[in-house]
């Protein structure tokens, strides 16, 4: 069985994002870019399933510009077997939407015939949390979203997925092939070791375009403007309780 893992290149989680001066988008020039943390978890889970014998091959896929190949290299250095890079140069005014990505992934899934597609539950840049669900719908496959535990039964071709829901844990059983999206507690991703980084250099990254896959990724949404949240006003230091009470009563009007 193959596992297809979708990964996304995003501004590093630890970077403080800034809006570009022309307010068209977030500034990504000379900003550290990394793999979306949820995607890292997805790659890790696919590798663990392969190591447990549930799968024979892990294929990492991404949609993005030439630099997104770095993110695929990271997935390969973690241990993925090969990668597919769907080239797409972003246009800040017309961002790539989850539906377009889901269509691309659907086309890849139909090509590769994986038993399982694993995605991060959301990307930390646009926070959409839609791609996995849309992909499952387009493929008409069952979906296990926000997975915190995944068990594959190869013989019965079933996946048991534990999901963290408001009231506790929900356990569902899916027929394969299926789509799974990962939550934070699913696993702790491994580091890329030097021997694996070395091996990754000789692994294949196949480059295709959306047109090759017959997918129209035209966006029908336009970004009008991007603004930073309003700056928090500086606090004041008061000299007495009386002053505090006065401010609470007359300025804040909470008393």
């Amino acid at each position: 069985m193959k596992i297809l893992v979708a990964v996304k290149r995003v501004v590093d989680y630890a970077v403080k994002v800034r809006v570009r001066p022309d307010r068209t988008a977030v500034d990504t020039a000379s900003v550290k870019m990394s793999m979306n943390p949820f995607c890292e978890i997805a790659v890790e889970e696919a590798l663990r399933l392969r190591e447990a014998g549930a799968s024979a091959e892990v294929i990492a896929a991404t949609v993005g510009p030439a630099q997104a190949a770095d993110t695929l290299r990271t997935a390969l250095a973690m241990g993925a077997d090969r990668a597919v890079h769907v080239l797409h140069d972003p246009d800040p005014a017309r961002p790539l939407l989850p539906l377009a990505v889901a269509k691309v992934l659907r086309a890849l899934a139909l090509q590769e015939n994986p038993g399982l597609v694993i995605l991060g539950k959301q990307a930390i840049d646009d926070d959409c949390n839609q791609t996995g669900q849309m992909l499952a719908a387009l493929l008409n496959w069952p979906q296990g979203t926000f997975a915190s535990k995944v068990i594959i039964d190869k013989d019965k071709q079933k996946a048991t997925v534990e999901r963290e829901v408001d009231g506790g844990t929900e356990t569902i059983c899916l027929d394969l092939p299926a789509v799974i999206t990962t939550d934070l507690r699913l696993n702790q991703p491994r580091y890329a070791t030097l021997p694996n980084i070395m091996k990754a250099k000789s692994k294949v990254i196949t480059k295709v375009t959306p047109a090759d896959l017959n997918v129209d990724i035209r966006s029908d949404m336009e970004v009008v403007q991007v603004d930073e949240p309003p700056k928090r006003k500086a606090g004041v230091i008061l000299s007495s309780v009386h002053e505090l009470l006065d401010k609470l009563k007359n300025e804040a009007r909470v008393l």
Binding site: E40, A77, A192
Partner: peptide, 23 residues
């Protein structure tokens, strides 16, 4: 690092792939 590993200076190693790993 790969060269150092071939030369036997480094036994094993990992490279941070993002800032959280670096931290």
């Amino acid at each position: 690092l790969l060269r150092s590993m071939e030369d036997g200076l480094v036994a094993d190693g990992v490279i941070a792939q993002d800032i959280s790993q670096a931290s």
